[in-house]
Design a protein around this nucleic acid. Sequence first.
DNA 1: GCTCTTGTTGTTATGTTGTACCATCCGCAT
DNA 2: ATGCGGATGGTACAACATAACAACAAGAGC
Lengths: 160, 160
Amino acid sequence: MTARAAAHAHTSHNHRACIDDALATARELCATRGVQLTPLREKVLHIVWRSHKPMGAYEVLDELARSHKAARPPTVYRALDFLMAEGLIHKIESLNAYLGCIEAGAPHSGQFLICQKCGATEEIVDPKLETALEAAARRAHFQPVRKVVEISGLCARCGK
Amino acid sequence: MTARAAAHAHTSHNHRACIDDALATARELCATRGVQLTPLREKVLHIVWRSHKPMGAYEVLDELARSHKAARPPTVYRALDFLMAEGLIHKIESLNAYLGCIEAGAPHSGQFLICQKCGATEEIVDPKLETALEAAARRAHFQPVRKVVEISGLCARCGK
DNA sequence: GCTCTTGTTGTTATGTTGTACCATCCGCAT
DNA sequence: ATGCGGATGGTACAACATAACAACAAGAGC
């Protein structure tokens, strides 16, 4: 079980390895693609990965500003936009917050289970759900581009 | 085919009947439930229903203010909150905008097809998709409360 | 009739999230 | 050395949303 495969928000895991793995994957991907994962962008990615809870842009900014005095809203949003464009993070629309992507490199919109109690958010990859989304769109002669799936409720721990 | 059943954003239909039907249903529902669909709230519902495009709260405010001088942001947000609580409108999270609900009375989170070109947004009710969502949550021992499904892309017309 | 309670609306101010726009810097190819 | 493109610095502002308290209206119980 790799660190990233263990990225279930509700399970305890070696989160340092989890982060390190995500950063390593990001560096590889960006090198391959010929895009720049600059120190600033990597720092933002690292901050987002510090927890499995979606993080608001201004939370990221506060954290970033501790080591980067020049940080301003555009600084953060530009980095977040880059990371999203490269598929390294996702935006959770229902929270206006950002979360590290567990399947970086494979372009996808993401499917999320968001705990309303503890905030932990797990990205899932469910082929049947994906199929159902495609089918629903097809039925309406609709060409899907981005599929937002965010299920809020109680995670395995909090729901007990 | 009733007006509401014809509420496909991309099809031409008698939108006046569409609105009238939605308002009549809303009045019935609120009467049954013993909650107040006040003139203000009804006016906001009417404004949201004027199109099949999700409407921002401040757009609603601008429209409302034409006939209601006292309108302020809280005026609109309170009305929208009431209408959402009663299941008469939905919030489209990926747009920060609001849309009339085509299945008022049946509590549901809604599934949406959002055209990126023309803005028309169609609410769909797809049992298989619903099942897939439930199954995905169940697999993770997650208790779903709200399910956000928003598919952006090109509608039948714009995708041709 | 009185007044208590509850729900709705008025009103001001502020908090939160996200962008427009232009300047500056830096590496690199010409 | 010059110009170019990508990245960052920095100011201001736009867009979205809520806190907090005042005013008012209508029904319930006395």
